[in-house]
Design a protein around this nucleic acid. Sequence first.
DNA 1: CGGTCTCTTGACGGAGTTCAAAGCTAGTGG
DNA 2: CCACTAGCTTTGAACTCCGTCAAGAGACCG
Lengths: 200, 200
Amino acid sequence: MNEHEMLFSHIRRFTTLSADKEELLSTRLKYKKIGRKDYLLQEFQICNAYYFVLSGCLRYYRNTNNGFEQILQFGIQGWWLSDFHSFENQKPSEYNIQAVHDTEILILYRSDYEELFDSVPELNSYFRLMMQRAYSASLKKIELLLCESAEERYLRFTRSFPEFVQTVPQYMLASFLGFTPQFLSMLRGKKDIIHTNNIK
Amino acid sequence: MNEHEMLFSHIRRFTTLSADKEELLSTRLKYKKIGRKDYLLQEFQICNAYYFVLSGCLRYYRNTNNGFEQILQFGIQGWWLSDFHSFENQKPSEYNIQAVHDTEILILYRSDYEELFDSVPELNSYFRLMMQRAYSASLKKIELLLCESAEERYLRFTRSFPEFVQTVPQYMLASFLGFTPQFLSMLRGKKDIIHTNNIK
DNA sequence: CGGTCTCTTGACGGAGTTCAAAGCTAGTGG
DNA sequence: CCACTAGCTTTGAACTCCGTCAAGAGACCG
């Protein structure tokens, strides 16, 4: 099974591609393995690709004026990540995309992008649905930021992604959830007593 | 000039439709005028349409557990609004779409939706870009919620949309920006003294 | 007019931040 | 294999932004 299979099976959940079209798409995908802390995009660069995560984890973050890092998205297995605004408008990005762990990705470059949508129109529909999902998810996140306390957000997230939470540094989790690492540490201190009745 | 012209000129900014295709799309659009406080979608209903705002203003909000209203989006002239998640998955919505003022809209019903994407494939591309824009905008909003204080958010928003801010009740603005009406009132009290040197 | 909805003002309280210091852990090089 | 360093996590005390509660003042509408 080749590296592209995971993407194809993802696409099949939303649309159908003929064998030739899969083949054509295949020739435009670039497989890459990057190491922890490697960058796919850095501030001020123009984003020129979409990235599909096969394994590992990416983070999409910004350096704020007050000099620290605000994570806006994680890219995990089966997700597309990019700075879509920079990509579409060919404007320098304000964001960074960096590997949290060693990560395998498929790259779709902008140079192939227009042509690919012409020759494989099903991709229009596929990416329309991807964007719609991403948009719905981020509206949901806005709602949670506005309606829930930091503690509720932490509990909800750890319950929803118990394994993922184990794999990323806590300061990244805190940043993503919208509070300080110190506060997260305090929360953990409180909770761990409750749901760890077994000895360490 | 007919009611559909504003949408067509919006579509032309992103793609090109032949005259027949414009014609075909036209037959699928329904124009509607709704009054202040009328609903296009209510909690527990399945959302079965996309709405394009011609004039007026819609709000997309949720009734929270603690019994008040959290506004997540405003729909203003030239924007599409819908509960895309409910629409796509045919699940009951958790949100409401209501007119803030008397509002004119174009409606695209789900019953025409699949067929329309087949016969006018350019719409795939158009809506892909709409979703991408909406997603980018909502990521930006997440960033502002996480990085800026309530006061900064208020100032940024009133500077960006000075005329819009005049037209919506302040409690809606406060909800959208993520703080209480009381706090907004306090901010205004502070600021109005500064940039209103002319007499009331 | 009288009632309802919206905006204002102020006192108080609490969730979460900031600052600072110390404890851990893992990677690195000698 | 151990010592050192750098990065991460923990802890606690002081502080602050913003929410909550409550009461009053306008404003709009039948």
